[in-house]
Deep mutational scan, measured.
Amino acid sequence: MSGNGNAAATAEENSPKMRVIRVGTRKSQLARIQTDSVVATLKASYPGLQFEIIAMSTTGDKILDTALSKIGEKSLFTKELEHALEKNEVDLVVHSLKDLPTVLPPGFTIGAICKRENPHDAVVFHPKFVGKTLETLPEKSVVGTSSLRRAAQLQRKFPHLEFRSIRGNLNTRLRKLDEQQEFSAIILATAGLQRMGWHNRVGQILHPEECMYAVGQGALGVEVRAKDQDILDLVGVLHDPETLLRCIAERAFLRHLEGGCSVPVAVHTAMKDGQLYLTGGVWSLDGSDSIQETMQATIHVPAQHEDGPEDDPQLVGITARNIPRGPQLAAQNLGISLANLLLSKGAKNILDVARQLNDAH
C-alpha cells in the first residue's frame, strides 16, 4: 500500500501541473516587456503551470559599433537563445518575429505568432524639431536608422535628408537623439515604442507609400524545439490566425527572394473581405531603383483552434497545428507568387547589386 502511495506522490510531482516552463529572452527592456506579455497570456491559459524567465545577451546586443547589415552573420539576435533551447536550458524563446530568419536551424520551429501590433515605422524627432515631419525637416538634416530597408525607401522619398546608421537598443538610440546634436530624427518601429509606453515620442507614423515595413514587423514569434510536442501544444494558444497568415505570406515572399538583413526588402499586408493583399518591394541601397507589386488571394481566416493538420510540417519556419492547413498554404503560395513576379521584373539584379555594395563598404 505504502509503495503505491509513493508512486502516486511521484506521479503528482512529475505531472504537468508541477512543471516549471523556462522562457528565454534577450536582456533589453523591450525584450523583457514583450516576454512578460507572452508569459502573462500563458499564465492565464495555464494557471497550474509556473513560468521562469531567463534573460541573456546576444551577438546583436554586444556589437554596437557596426551596422547590422555589415556584421555579416545571420541570427544576430537569436543564436545564443537557440543555443540555450538546444541544450534544454529553456523550453521556449520569445523573439520579435522580424529577427527570426525565414529558414531556422534544424530542430527549431516557430510554435506561435502572437497578435500583431502596429507594424509601421515611426519617426521620433529631436526636441528642437518636435512638430515637424520628415518632409518639413531642414535641408541636409541627419536621420538615424539601423535599417537598409528604411534608408533606401526614405532616401527616395525625401532626397533633402541624409540617413546615417544608429545602433543600440531603444533606450540607447533615444538617448543619442536627445543628448547629442548629430541626429534631427530617428526611425523606429511603432510597436516597440508603444510597448515601452513611449507613445508621446511618436512624431509621425510612416504610411506604406512612404515606407513599407519589415517582414514580420510588429509581431512576436515564440520559438521552440520542433519535436517538443508538449510545448508546441502549450504555445499553440498564442497563435493569432490573421497575423499568422499575413506573416506566412510575408516570410514566403522574403524567403523566395532570398532577402535578408543586408538587402532592402519591404512588405505591406492587409486582410479585407476574405482577401489577403500582399505588397512587396525591393530597392537599391540608395533607393534610386525599385520594383513594387501587389497581389491578392482569397483566404478564409479560420477561428482559433479549428482542428489543424496533425502532421505539422513547417511552413517558412512556422508550425501551427491548430490552424487549418489550406489557408496557410494559400498564404505561402501568395508570397511565392509575388516573389516570382518581382524576380521576373529584375528584382534579383537589384538585390545582387545591393548585396555587393553593402559587402564592399
Rank of each mutant, 00 (worst) to 15 (best):
V90D: 01
L76E: 05
G259D: 11
G72A: 10
C114F: 08
L137T: 04
D312C: 14
I21L: 15
I113V: 01
I33V: 08
F129Q: 13
D230M: 15
L238T: 01
A151V: 11
S290P: 05
D240I: 06
G259T: 13
T145F: 10
Q314R: 01
R175E: 06
E250F: 01
P324I: 04
T269P: 01
I63A: 13
H268C: 07
A40Q: 07
Q50T: 10
L161I: 09
P105R: 10
G24C: 09
L97N: 04
D307H: 15
P324D: 15
K87N: 12
S96W: 01
G335E: 03
N333T: 01
D286N: 14
P327T: 07
G168C: 01
L170R: 01
M196V: 11
L154I: 05
L85H: 01
T294G: 14
I53F: 13
S290A: 01
V20T: 12
Y46A: 08
A151H: 11
D311N: 12
K87H: 08
F163A: 12
L341S: 05
Q328R: 01
I318K: 15
R246W: 06
V38P: 01
Q204S: 15
D178G: 13
I187C: 06
C114R: 09
G24Q: 01
P264T: 15
P138C: 10
I63N: 14
L188P: 05
T279A: 13
L278Y: 01
V222C: 10
D36I: 07
T172W: 04
H83D: 12
G72M: 09
H120Y: 13
F77M: 01
S288R: 03
F77S: 04
L278W: 04
A112P: 05
L100Y: 12
Q153I: 03
T298I: 04
S284I: 15
D233K: 10
L161F: 07
D311H: 14
R321Q: 06
G280N: 01
G168S: 01
T25G: 05
G308I: 14
L245T: 01
Q181G: 11
T136F: 08
D178E: 12
E179F: 07
Q50M: 15
G60M: 01
P127F: 10
V237S: 11
I113Q: 05
Q292G: 08
R156F: 05
K345F: 15
E179C: 10
L341V: 10
D230I: 15
A189Q: 03
G168L: 04
N171W: 14
L193Q: 07
T172C: 08
N200I: 13
A84P: 06
R149A: 01
L232K: 13
G259N: 01
R149I: 04
A331S: 04
V301D: 12
E89M: 08
D240N: 15
Q180W: 06
E242H: 15
V103N: 09
S37K: 13
N171V: 07
T269E: 01
P127R: 13
